[in-house]
């Protein structure tokens, strides 16, 4: 899960390691760090914003670690949904209870259906839908695509996913 934290550090050299060490000790991966030297507080501390990926269950331990190091935590933000993909479904989507399909994705806790466009040319004919799924990370996105694929198989819907991209743009994309 991606976390953003606003912290305050003492304005002394060597303080940053009190932030970085606990994060890396818990397997976290830092995406961005900004030192706001120009925004020193009246408490003579320097605001720091750090964005990193870490397992959600280690978050509490991290907070304790930071506080023990004398780092003040001003704000913790969970940036939940940052991976996105589109899936195309074709078949009797309406008859097979669309709500249930969406609920199954939303119920995972790590992914949700963000957008759905539906085209129904005839009441008895097959309909088509593009479903936009967002998830907390690439792995979670893959899992939710897997769930949707299973639903599609169960309901005899044609399931069309993006070509899995290998480092080039398009397909699965990360979003802040």
């Amino acid at each position: 899960m991606r976390i953003s934290m606003d912290l305050e550090l003492q304005d002394r050299p060597g303080q940053l390691k009190h932030v970085l060490t606990p994060i890396s000790d818990l397997g976290g991966n830092i995406a961005s760090i900004v030192h706001h030297h120009d925004k020193k507080t009246f408490r003579n501390t320097v605001p720091v914003s750090v964005i990193f990926d870490i397992e959600e269950q280690t978050l509490e331990e991290l907070q304790e670690g930071l506080e023990k190091n004398g780092v003040a935590i001003v704000r913790i933000g969970k940036m939940r949904l940052r991976a996105r993909t589109h899936i195309l479904l074709i078949g009797h989507i309406i008859h097979t209870n669309l709500r249930e399909t969406i609920d199954e994705i939303d119920g995972t806790g790590f992914a949700e259906v963000q957008d759905l466009s539906l085209s129904m040319p005839a009441i008895d004919g097959p309909s088509s839908a593009v479903i936009t799924i967002m998830a907390t990370g690439d792995e979670e996105l893959k899992k939710s695509i897997g769930i949707l694929r299973q639903i599609a198989e169960r309901k005899d819907l044609l399931f069309i996913e993006p070509l899995d991209e290998r480092g080039s743009p398009g397909g699965v994309s990360n979003e802040e």
Binding site: I90, S117, V130
Partner: peptide
């Protein structure tokens, strides 16, 4: 193997609106 015989024109239009070809 999955073929193309179930693909609808609407599906292709929806994909296109999202920037994809099938």
């Amino acid at each position: 193997v999955t073929g193309i015989d179930r693909i609808t024109q609407d599906a292709l239009q929806l994909a296109r609106q999202r920037g994809f070809a099938v």
